[in-house]
Design a protein around this nucleic acid. Sequence first.
RNA 1: GAGCCGUUAGCUCAGGCGGCAGAGCAUCUGACUUUUAAUCAGAGGGUCCCGGGUUCGAGUCCCGGACGGCUCACCA
Length: 534
Amino acid sequence: MTASAPGASPQKAEFWPYAEAGKLAARAAGYPPERSVVFESGFGPSGLPHLGTMGEVLRPAYVRQAFAALEPSRSSRLIVFIDDMDGLRKVPESLPDREGVAAFLGRPVAQIPDPFGCCSSFAGHMIGLLRVFLAPAEVDYELLRASEMYSTGRFDEVLRRILVLHGEIIAIVAPTLREQNRENWSPFMPVCPACGQVNSTLVTAHRPERDSVEFSCQRSFGGAHGCGFRGERSVLGGGAKVQWKVDWALRWRVLGVDYELYGKDLIDSARISGRIVRLLGGTPPLGFPFEMYLDEAGHKVSKSIGRGVGVEQWRRYAPIEVLKYFLILNPQRARKLFLESIPQYVDEYLDELRAWSAAPEDARRNSPLTFVLQRNSARRFASQLSFAMIMNLVGALGTDDRQLIRAYLQRYDQATGADPETEALVSTLVECAINYYRDFVEPAKQRFEPSEHERAHLGELIAWLKSHPDAEADEIERAVYEIGRLHYDKPGKIFPVVYKALLGQERGPRLGSFFRLTTPARAAEILERALETS
RNA sequence: GAGCCGUUAGCUCAGGCGGCAGAGCAUCUGACUUUUAAUCAGAGGGUCCCGGGUUCGAGUCCCGGACGGCUCACCA
């Protein structure tokens, strides 16, 4: 019930979600029983969600799950906080109507029309994408929007306090700013009532006695400029937002956040926000800085197009469970991720799954799969297959003929078809392998341009296949060799010719059994077509 | 320049409290009744970034350095 959660196996290192949950349990030990523990994760709706976003939501969810196991009687919430009061600073690429959006630079993204034309606002559209994007991961969370928190007054009480204490807050933040920026810095960013921009206003005086600030709309940023308006505006009810580090403190204070994961780039921000939240009478949440994901060259994965592997891509080449598995691996270690490394993680996952299903209940506690398995995930993998092998097979067969692929897999390991759960997972893996094959292997194939001799040899093989529709595998194999023996100094030299005609590559499956499975008649057709198009 | 994190096989990564350095992929060799692929079996492969220190013993703990990444914004 309280902090002294006994580890099930003290001789082992705790899996990191339990270690984190243990710290959290100690923190919550003095809480009244009805008080929930609050996890927070942030999402900036000024851009598209990406792999990092997935990690930022899933990783606190893992800690939450571990916490629930440790403290079953304590309720918890996972808040995904959407900062839609954020002013748009630049127009993201890959948006429709970029010029139209550019006219709204500097305004809160909640106030910008949806360039896709289907949602209430720019931010609304991104939030919709986020929901769709998170849905397959089956993670339980609640969304809170900054614009609603501000406009409904839920932030007002603490906003007043920030205004009263603005001098102390400035004293905390100023040393971290460049000198030329210190003089005019204020915790508040009023929304200009004349032009609607939030990034263009400069606070000229704080008026805590009237809950307001005086400001002028004069700052420029990017390609946008202030409108020149000068005035005074209440900081309550959405008239202003607060600056980043103050904003974090505000959220922590109002929502009672207990746990916040953030990228290591925010370590310094978290320190500052922690001092501010104390000033506001709150306690900083437990923090957990995690490492970034890197691309093949070791650079940080960025939202901008083309860098790193996206979630859509990942899902095309691997099951969602494997992505979740990847995201639970030691978060304090920088990880490189590129397309070629995905199959490796799939096979790691399959190994884990085999171990998990064989393990007794209490030994499963420390397995990543306890956190990663979905409602409909296979609970076991009763097969010797590996994803690498399936990928190779699809490549070797050079086909997306699922029946043929399954026939080979079945021959390799009969157990595969016996268990429905294994069967389902194998189906998914085959689809992923086919996607990979289509996207990367097939386009790289070279056109086959046979010589007259090769054309003739293949003609012989086609004729033979047509006249032996019921031939057995070894019979076919012998026939191929026979043609090779007739025309080449070494009979094996016929094989690359057949493979090039068949698959556009120099190697492939053993021809006897391959032709037998496809049937000689169909094999003959495929070869004929290859000769026609070449 | 300051702070944080990292560096283990060709590549991606594991290495509980200090106790004989590991896996997968890649490479090489062999097997699968004729020189092809999958597959299977086996092998090679290491200055654990460098230098000190503590210790009977250091990939692991401490100090110093090199290299790489991220941050140090009126961006969240």
